[in-house]
Amino acid sequence: MKKVIKREDYDKKIKRKTSYLCINLNRCTGCKSCEIACSFHFSKVFSPQISAIRIWRSNVSGDIEISLHSNCDLCNKEEEPLCVKYCAPKALIFIKK
């Protein structure tokens, strides 16, 4: 028999899955604070190499690329992702539904 999931349980379950990391590229200054904050979340050291978020700013055009690795857990257990917390220009915003 198919298990019936109560609506409130479903919402609870969905809650984490429907949190978003919104990126506003125009606001990003390319400072990489998010990168080092991210590495600190993973292993309490500073090392962009292990970060889930990577920033690259072109010297030539000033354009910015932001890549997010699939191992990003939106800083589970933290109040908000550390990349968002240390994003001074608020280019990264956390939306929790």
């Binding site: 200054t29 400072c31 220009p89």
Partner: peptide
């Protein structure tokens, strides 16, 4: 100005990026 520019891990923005297409200028 196309954006604020900050150096490594700086919450303070020291400069801006400028683009002036008609003059072929793209520079911090």
């Amino acid at each position: 100005k196309t954006r604020n520019i900050a150096e490594f891990n700086s919450p303070i923005y020291m400069s801006s990026f400028y683009k002036i297409p008609e003059k072929g200028i793209e520079t911090e």
